[in-house]
Amino acid sequence: MTAAYTSDEMMTVAAARQLHNGTVCFVGIGLPSTAATLARVTSAPDVVLIYESGTLGAKPARLPLSIGDGILAETADAVVSVPEVFNYWLQPGRIDVGFLSAAQIDRYANINTTVIGSDYRHPKVRLPGAGGAPEIAASCREVVVVLRQTLRTFVDRVDFITSVGFGQGPGDRQRLGLSGSGPRVVITDFGILTPDPETCELTLVSVHNGSTAEDARAATGWPLAVSPDLATTDPPTEEELTVLRRLEATQGA
């Protein structure tokens, strides 16, 4: 028997399971930060967390509200400048996993965090912008994306490519000279998607308990491919849920 949990909790737990002991992870703000902290406190105590504020090997025991909270600096192996974190640590390919979120994502896992609307100068919604994401998406060995899946977020074409996934399809990353291999997995509140090895198109490979492939299709702005070997995600364990709830209750405290 498992405790009741929300689809957001399932998403965060599934994202946390992507990180392992020894993985060096560049952590983005928001959902990735929650999942990375959960991973470190539960299954992956020796994951190496790097934040764009310049904190290398931070060991937060509670959830930071921002990626520059004092707890990150106080627990880090090293605190370096922002030029250093991007030039010495990210750019040469020293980081295994870039952990990102997005306002919009498309079938080739390109990410938009810049504007909603087709006119950049007169956007419908002005979003925060790129931050570290374009270079994280380009230079980490691989990328994990976590975001809620709706018709507004899973769109046929993103309004603005802030960070490149697979561009317009196979071969684009190589053509652009991007050193990392790109998005390995996308975790949502419905399930888990991975890029098809041939077409690079995001394919639903697992649904969370209580969701169906039809639910995920209905929340996707393109005809979503579904794996013939569709799996069901293991529900959160008691420990994962307890720790996640404790972390969220003390965020930024």
Binding site: Q91, T114, P134, E135, A138, F160, V164, G167, L176, S179
Partner: peptide, 8 residues
């Protein structure tokens, strides 16, 4: 730097 390539 290595940056921005492929972005809008």
């Amino acid at each position: 730097l290595r940056g921005y390539v492929g972005t809008d």
